[in-house]
């Protein structure tokens, strides 16, 4: 006797869901069963939302952030934003994080990842060439590299900084150090070490 299995449509959806990042076979199964029972009313809306994702969202050619098809990019079309400063980030999510801080009112540029030859991510896979064109066209005076501080992030920053220095653009990196509103007891040693290195005269 063949082992009992879910009907094909259920298996298909479980298979689709578990290929998503952060979702394993058990979670996928639970989600599908929920969609079949309690969540049945929500399923069509979910399907519509998923379809709309592909048809009505596009990536802004200039900055790499997302916008709705047919509308201008909310970031690039905003005239109140400074044009002389460009902040380079790895992911679109980083744009929102920086934006919520309210500290930056310039242009953003999303790279779409960081250099990692061991994962086969090369300079050609990132939006580095568009960054160079954009910096020239804006024209930008300063480029801020807001990249992560692991080996891959550092290497990406070094690579871009090297390219931009040749074009005589001021390149800066985010400072590393103390979290705001916290004492020394909440800081790990490595961060404290960097914070000491990057201390400032007051």
């Amino acid at each position: 006797m063949a082992a009992l299995e879910y009907p094909a449509p259920i298996r298909q959806l479980i298979w689709q869901l578990k290929s998503l990042p952060g979702i394993g076979p058990r979670s996928a199964e639970r989600l599908v069963l929920w969609l079949l029972s309690t969540g049945a009313t929500q399923a069509p809306q979910l399907a519509d939302a998923l379809k709309a994702l592909g048809s009505s969202v596009e990536m802004c050619e200039a900055c790499g952030f997302y916008s709705e098809c047919g509308t201008q990019c909310a970031l690039c079309s905003d005239d109140r934003r400074q044009r002389a400063v460009v902040c380079v980030v790895e992911q679109a999510a980083d744009v929102l994080r920086l934006e919520r801080s309210g500290a930056f009112r310039g242009q953003y540029h999303v790279l779409g990842g960081k250099l990692s030859p061991l994962d086969n991510v090369t300079p050609e896979d990132l939006r580095i060439a568009p960054l160079l064109h954009r910096v020239r066209d804006l024209p930008a005076e300063e480029v801020i590299l807001a990249l992560s501080s692991d080996v891959e992030g550092e290497a990406t920053a070094n690579y871009i900084a090297d390219l931009l220095r040749r074009a005589e653009i001021k390149v800066t990196r985010l400072a590393q150090g103390m979290p705001a509103g916290g004492g020394l007891d909440h800081v790990d040693e490595m961060t404290l070490f960097r914070a000491l290195e990057g201390r400032r005269t007051i």
């Binding site: 300079p123 290497a155 070094n158 690579y159 090297d162």
Partner: peptide, 17 residues
Amino acid sequence: KRDAQINWRHADAYAQI
């Protein structure tokens, strides 16, 4: 190792680290 024509700028990014 990867490319026939070595991207030295890429290699240098790691050399700095």
